[in-house]
């Protein structure tokens, strides 16, 4: 009986060392992988096309019209007919 208990103590000793070694290896693996592959915050949301309230798009179109026609685009006016 004593021999079996002694054997079980040796098994305990060996196994606990193996468990700590295996999980220790995993610990270092995670630390290294975390250094190599750090979490990056997601890129900020892209601005909607045309910029805020579409003002940037309006400016771009205005500048294109100016280049094409050679004059400043005027205000849109509605002339009543009749």
């Amino acid at each position: 009986m004593f021999d079996l208990i002694w054997a079980s103590l040796i098994v305990t000793f060996i196994s606990m060392i193996v468990i700590f070694i295996v999980l220790g290896v995993l610990y270092f693996l995670i630390v290294v992988l975390d250094r190599l592959l750090p979490h990056r915050a997601p890129a900020p949301e892209q601005k909607p096309a045309g910029g805020q309230n579409g003002r940037e798009l309006t400016a771009v179109i205005g500048s294109a019209i100016q280049t094409y026609t050679g004059r400043k685009p005027g205000k849109l006016t509605i002339t009543p007919r009749g």
Partner: peptide, 24 residues
């Protein structure tokens, strides 16, 4: 928090204390 791996290992001592007790 990989340090917690060690806690998972330490809890296994229960397995082996019981092994010794069962042999007894």
């Amino acid at each position: 928090n990989p340090m917690t791996l060690l806690l998972g290992a330490a809890a296994q001592i229960g397995v082996y204390i019981t092994l010794v007790s069962a042999v007894a």
